[in-house]
């Protein structure tokens, strides 16, 4: 699947950029915010999937870093003023790198479900702290008024700012995924013992991708603060971690762009279903269940294997 021709990749990138770049023409702030949300969450999901789909580490605690990014911006603006918005974005990302590096030593001692549960535990701890330490973080009241100064204060300019950052980040992650390092990460998922035989350190590679994935999660959180102009402790709650897992599985965890498509679909479904029925959770639950049981390759994965079947008359079947 990584062997897609350069031409095709170029076409895809061109289409991706053009479609998103044209959204502001609608002159509708709702579509703009929606597209912005899809971009940011899409990046979050792609970065998360580098951990899950590629390296096989299911973290249930990426909300911690998403929130760290958001609160980097929020706390800087709250205590130092609006001019510090961008500095806050940088601070959040830097903090995430440090926290992920340190936490990595704690949580990457165990694997499988233990890793999942440990990350969940630390994520919930961070959520509790922000929720209760309300004197500093604003707790459940959140922090509002997060508007960047200067031209970034304009919604459209901010949108393009996000678009460029997201495109660069996703491009970087794509390069990483296709690089020898990406190959090693795949080996870590499929056969850690062999990675060791080859003289590579499994844990070190796991920690490295954990930090990288978390840094982009924090970037996503920081960018979201500017989309909503407010942040809230919900960013750190396990439901955020759950949502990003759902996006990845829905899109397809063995496709690089799967999670991005998954993010777009989830954000649209959430909005469309939420606008029409109070029983949104039933519908989203049923969609999720259907995907898990019948389409485990995800939307993009099923599409790819469908195309493959068409081409070879149903003889080829990709392993899941």
């Amino acid at each position: 699947m990584e062997a897609a021709s350069d031409k095709k990749a170029l076409l895809f990138w061109g289409l991706f950029l053009v479609v998103f770049a044209l959204v502001p023409i609608s002159r509708n702030d709702y579509y703009l915010a929606m597209a912005n949300r899809i971009l940011v969450w899409g990046m979050f999901a792609v970065a998360f999937n580098m951990l899950f789909g590629v390296t096989g580490m299911l973290s249930f605690g990426q909300a911690l870093f998403f929130g760290l990014g958001g609160y980097g911006v929020g706390l800087m603006v709250k205590y130092l003023g609006q001019a510090w918005f961008l500095a806050g974005l940088g601070a959040g990302v830097a903090a995430a790198a440090v926290v992920a590096y340190l936490l990595g030593y704690l949580v990457i001692r165990v694997s499988g479900v233990f890793f999942t549960i440990l990350t969940l535990a630390f994520g919930q701890l961070a959520w509790q702290i922000t929720f209760r330490w309300y004197r500093v973080t604003g707790g459940d009241d959140g922090i509002q008024g997060l508007v960047p100064t200067g031209i970034l204060g304009d919604h459209i300019v901010y949108y393009y700012f996000c678009l460029i950052l997201v495109a660069c980040s996703v491009w970087f992650l794509k390069r990483l995924s296709a690089s020898p390092q990406g190959l090693i990460l795949r080996c870590v998922r499929q056969n850690p013992a062999r990675v060791r035989f080859l003289g590579r350190r499994v844990r070190r590679n796991q920690r490295r991708i954990y930090v990288i994935s978390s840094v982009f999660a924090a970037l996503a959180g920081g960018l979201m603060a500017g989309v909503d102009n407010s942040i809230h402790t919900n960013m750190l709650n396990w439901t955020t971690s759950g949502e990003v897992i759902l996006m990845s599985v829905l899109g397809g965890i063995h496709q690089f762009f799967g999670p991005f498509i998954g993010a777009a679909v989830i954000k649209v479904i959430e909005d469309v279903v939420g606008a029409r029925t109070e029983y949104w959770s039933l519908i989203i639950g049923l969609v999720m269940m259907t995907m898990v049981l019948l389409f485990p390759r995800g939307l993009v994965g099923e599409w790819v294997s469908f195309k493959a079947r068409m081409r070879s008359g149903g003889a080829r079947k990709e392993g899941v």
Partner: peptide, 13 residues
């Protein structure tokens, strides 16, 4: 991952 998602969907339902 699938366990978590499947049981999460049960929560919602």
């Amino acid at each position: 991952g699938f366990q978590i998602l499947l049981t999460y969907s049960l929560i919602l339902i």
